[in-house]
Design a binder for these strands. Structure first.
Length: 570
RNA sequence: GUCCGCGUAGCUCAGCUGGAUAGAGCAAUGCCCUUCUAAGGCAAAGGCCGCAGGUUCAAAUCCUGCCGCGGAUACCA
């Protein structure tokens, strides 16, 4: 139980006792630390229905809060806020908890016995990963980690796009313009070239689209040559994609099942849907699902030539997942351009008896370049590999300047560079679009992963030196300033568990980032004005070392969830 | 056209389950390395929270309209 939960429960009881009513308790962090650690606005909320002055109500509630060791004092302030100040004892015991639980600190069993499938990354095969793939990949992986930390049993899935008309296009393009030797030498780039060429040519001659559809249809019906090409394309692409995941580090899937995996599961689904009139005939012999809401366009489920679509595969996939894993929820970490599609998908699924509203679209904003859309079709993409390499290069350059004597420069540059890229994505609210900019994406200062890693490294630098012979104590300490910094740092610790849970509920990694940043800021402020190793009193020295240890532990745990590693020195 | 999302400091963005003086980073100004890593800290500066109404004790946050930007809009994924 978090401190916030405990206060909530204390308050709830007090409200019941004092007013014989129940109100929705909402605890928030006051904007100003002078207003305490937690605040409740319940008195103001109840003022109207009770026709009483909110401050009077607050007083009645406060009178009914029993004495306890959790809270130091309760204040009524402003128009009727009830402000809680957490006792030092509570804060110190939370700090001890960190030191005791170490890497496990923060974990809870909120989601116990609940299974969640998280689908993310899901690249289309035969195309290299672009920077924009970072969004689904990193956000998805992090949500998977966060949900796991708060106790959910997560199943991470990479739903590879290895099926569909795009392969018709590629097969057609290869047959027409491709050369075996070239493709063997540099598979992914050659496939991309062919794919781009196809779209260029198709612009001039739209009939090519039909040719591609035909190739896909032949393929789906078992054409040997096309099957063989497909396999080749898939194998080569996967090799490349996995290489990139490795570079990103921390990207792990419990299952990588391509759309092709569901090939033999679509027919049964189509029959079921048609029989139940969920899929009805549309134009020219196609099958569609219609919706009452006229703002939702009908969804095509089978093309007029009988071939399947992504919608067909997605519903088959949904059914398969529900039957096999019986999850509480299935999260689709997919860009918001597909908002309507997911509405269609889930609406359709609702009509099947096996679906119980498991699906949830975790949508996120799009990444684009300053002046144009990123489009694989048009070939204007920035490769993910390229971005990671540049990030590492920049990190290395700075290390060369700032820490020329550092031992493992290469390893550190990689951790810092890749971390910066990941954090950059994760720290932004996922619904906001991102305009790709090299300098911003690879920033190594301010609110960034390196800032946190640096904070961690400084903390550990202190801890490493703690056992060395004691240095001379400082002659004078600014007591009030020191107390203030320590208090602020201490009060930030319990929020970790609270914000982690909040972040899991909202599926928003940026909430966790924000917390970690706040903690790091407070620590840096502490670092600059509170001497640790040279503390005057031995007792004080020990205590400051403990806080340092606790804070660095939280930073490490939190960053680990974000897939960002820490370094001892940088 | 319709539907969805967004519009906050010069720039990039937090904050949006309504709450107390709207917060960061970057850029620009000044200060702090003979004390634990200056990738840092401190100080000051910077805001009709797109516009206009409405609901409320209280609106950046909720509702309506308008303007601007982005996206979606049946056989791509």
């Amino acid at each position: 139980m978090t401190i916030k939960d405990q206060i909530e429960s204390i308050l709830e009881k007090a409200v019941k006792k004092a007013l014989k009513t129940e109100g929705e308790i909402f605890i928030q962090y006051p904007s100003d630390i002078l207003h305490g650690d937690y605040a409740a606005n319940i008195a103001m909320k109840l003022a109207k229905t009770m026709q009483k002055n909110p401050r009077e109500i607050a007083e009645q509630i406060v009178k009914n809060i029993p004495k306890n060791t959790l809270i130091k004092k309760v204040e009524i302030a402003g128009p009727g806020f009830i402000n809680f100040f957490v006792s030092e004892k509570t804060l110190k015991s939370e700090m001890s908890k960190v030191l005791k639980e170490k890497a496990k600190y923060g974990k809870c069993n909120e989601g116990k016995n609940k299974k969640v499938i998280v689908e993310y990354s899901s690249p289309n095969i035969a195309k290299p990963l672009g920077v924009h793939h970072l969004l689904s990949t990193i956000i998805g992986q992090t949500l998977n980690n966060i949900l796991g930390a708060v106790g959910y049993k997560t199943i991470s899935m990479n739903h590879i796009g290895d099926w569909g008309t795009q392969f018709g296009k590629l097969i057609y393009a290869y047959k027409k313009w491709g050369k075996k030797e070239i493709l063997e030498k540099d598979p992914i780039n050659e496939m991309l070239k062919l794919y781009v060429k196809f779209h260029e040519e198709a612009e001039k001659d739209p009939k090519l689209e039909d040719c591609a559809r035909k190739e896909f249809k032949d393929f789906e019906e078992g054409d040997k040559e096309n099957r063989k090409l497909w396999e080749w394309f898939v194998v080569e692409s996967l090799k490349e994609i996995n290489r990139t995941y490795k570079k990103l580090s921390g990207i792990k899937f419990d299952f990588t099942l391509g759309e092709s995996f569901y090939e033999d599961k679509m027919e049964e689904l189509l029959e079921e849907g048609k029989k139940k009139k969920i899929f009805v005939e549309g134009d020219e012999g196609s099958y569609i699902a219609k919706f009452d809401d006229e703002n939702i366009a009908p969804m095509v489920i089978q093309k007029k030539d009988g071939a399947t679509l992504y919608s067909t595969r997605d519903i088959a996939t949904l059914k398969y997942r529900i039957k096999r894993w019986k999850p509480e929820k299935i999260l689709y970490v997919v860009d918001m351009a597909q908002n309507m599609y997911f509405k269609q998908l889930f609406e359709t699924a609702k009509r099947f008896s096996w679906y119980k509203d498991e699906g949830f679209h975790v949508s996120f904003g799009r990444m684009r370049m300053e002046d144009m859309q990123m489009s694989t079709r048009k070939g204007n993409i920035i490769l993910l590999d390229q971005v990671l390499e540049e990030a590492i290069k920049r990190a290395k350059k700075i290390i060369g300047e700032k820490s020329p004597d550092l031992k493992n420069k290469d390893a550190v540059s990689e951790i810092v560079g890749v971390g910066a890229v990941k954090y950059n994505i994760l720290s932004q609210n996922r619904s906001t679009d991102i305009v790709f900019d090299w300098d911003k994406m690879l920033s190594l200062e301010g609110n960034s992963a390196p800032y946190m890693q640096y904070t961690y490294a400084r903390a550990h630098s202190i801890l490493r030196k703690a056992s060395a012979p004691k240095k001379e104590a400082k002659t004078s300490e600014n007591k009030s300033e020191i107390d203030e910094k320590i208090s602020q740092l201490l009060r930030t610790i319990p929020k970790f568990r609270e914000q982690l849970i909040y972040s899991a509920h909202e599926y928003k990694p940026n909430l966790l980032c924000q917390y970690l940043y706040e903690l790091a800021q407070k620590f840096n402020s502490f670092y600059n004005s509170v001497p640790v190793l040279t503390a005057k009193e031995p007792k004080e020295r020990l205590f400051r070392l403990k806080i340092t240890q606790a804070v660095s532990q939280i930073l490490q745990n939190g960053l680990a969830l974000l897939g960002v590693a820490v370094v001892e020195e940088m």
